[in-house]
């Protein structure tokens, strides 16, 4: 695995000057992943913050071949692209031994919701690609609407916390488990605060032949109602509170890759975020404890599976 010094020496494949917000989790995620690819990379993006923020005419932040087609089909698009490169190799237009990596990016809306069918199809067809979901927990590009990745009780513009309803009422979809159920050779959850873990997982994922997947926690100051400078700290808290466990499933074996020495109370992650403000009203103490209990049981489930063959 590369050290941070070695990583820093590699070419920056997503340039500065893009229009993503200050404090956005996406650029460090994309950069660490692209730096972890040892060789040429081709990428696709679903409609979303990453796509609009990096490609406003007449500029592009991408220093690699990149394609955007629509919202629901980043995985389908990369399927076509990867197949096209295979065809070009077959015809001798590209050297057959050239190791080209394919990465599809999508946000949680474009991956958990509208893009799930496209992702599932590409995983099942065993295309040789890495899918990266940057999960900021809502449709941030259209103005913070809830998605199936939105955390429980989160306030969004379509799950507003009011007098009666306290934000989103449903537990988030466990997308990583859904991907694992496709028997992919490698799938993992990561966070940009732990660059070493993220880089290592990206390197692994890109070295494997077949479909692989990274689900990455991506802080969003706009949608989380947080300070830009707190993003990485909040990413770390999501992991230290075990809301967002870091783990990988390699060839069917579960490995929890980070176990906090001291599991922090969930409230430490929730409190600085405006989207959870209502949970700290005295009358909502029961909701907060219910949320904590669910996080605890999810974490325990994971710990029980640690080291085991899960498919």
């Amino acid at each position: 695995m590369a050290t941070i010094k070695e990583l820093a020496k590699k070419d920056e494949l997503l340039s500065g000057g893009h229009r993503l917000c200050a404090g956005c989790g996406i650029p460090p995620i994309v950069r660490i992943i692209l730096r972890s690819a040892n060789g040429p990379v081709v990428a696709s993006s679903a409609t979303g913050c990453l796509e609009v923020g990096t490609t406003i005419y007449p500029y592009t932040a991408w220093r690699i071949p990149w394609i955007h087609s629509a919202f629901e089909n980043s995985a389908a698009t990369i399927s076509g692209v990867e197949t096209a490169y295979r065809a070009l190799k077959k015809r001798g237009r590209i050297p057959a031994d050239k190791d080209i990596k394919f990465v599809a990016f999508g946000g949680d809306g474009g991956t958990y919701d509208i893009g799930l069918q496209s992702l599932s199809g590409a995983l099942e067809r065993r295309h040789n690609f890495l899918y990266v979901c940057y999960d900021n927990g809502a449709y941030m590009n259209t103005g913070i609407q809830r998605s199936s990745a939105t955390p429980l009780f989160s306030n969004t513009t379509t799950s507003q916390a009011g007098e009666v309803i306290q934000g989103k009422q449903e537990w988030r979809k466990d997308l990583t488990r859904i991907v694992v159920a496709h028997n992919v050779p490698f799938a993992a959850q990561c966070s940009p605060h732990n660059w070493a873990d993220l880089s290592k997982k990206a390197e692994k994922a890109l070295a494997v032949k077949g479909p692989t997947f990274l689900n990455v926690m991506s802080p969003c100051p706009l949608g989380w109602y947080t300070k830009s400078e707190d993003s990485i700290k909040l990413a770390k808290l999501s992991v230290d509170t075990c809301y967002w466990p870091l783990y990988e499933v390699e060839n069917g074996v579960m490995k929890v890759t980070y176990k906090p020495k001291e599991k922090k109370p969930l409230a430490e992650w929730l409190k600085p975020q405006g989207r959870f403000k209502h949970l700290f009203k005295p009358e909502n103490a029961n909701l907060l404890s219910a949320f904590q209990a669910r996080v605890d049981s999810e974490w325990q489930r994971l710990i029980d599976l640690d080291g085991k063959q899960v498919y």
């Binding site: 259209t142 609407q145 507003q160």
Partner: peptide, 29 residues
């Protein structure tokens, strides 16, 4: 489903419909 430039309709009804006993659902697509 969220889409610019119509999302304010969904946002408005997500608040107003439950207040009158109606139902708002944000779907997956």
């Amino acid at each position: 489903y969220p889409i610019t430039p119509s999302t304010e309709i969904a946002e408005g009804l997500s608040v107003r419909l439950p207040q009158r006993g109606g139902k708002f659902i944000q779907m997956e697509d």
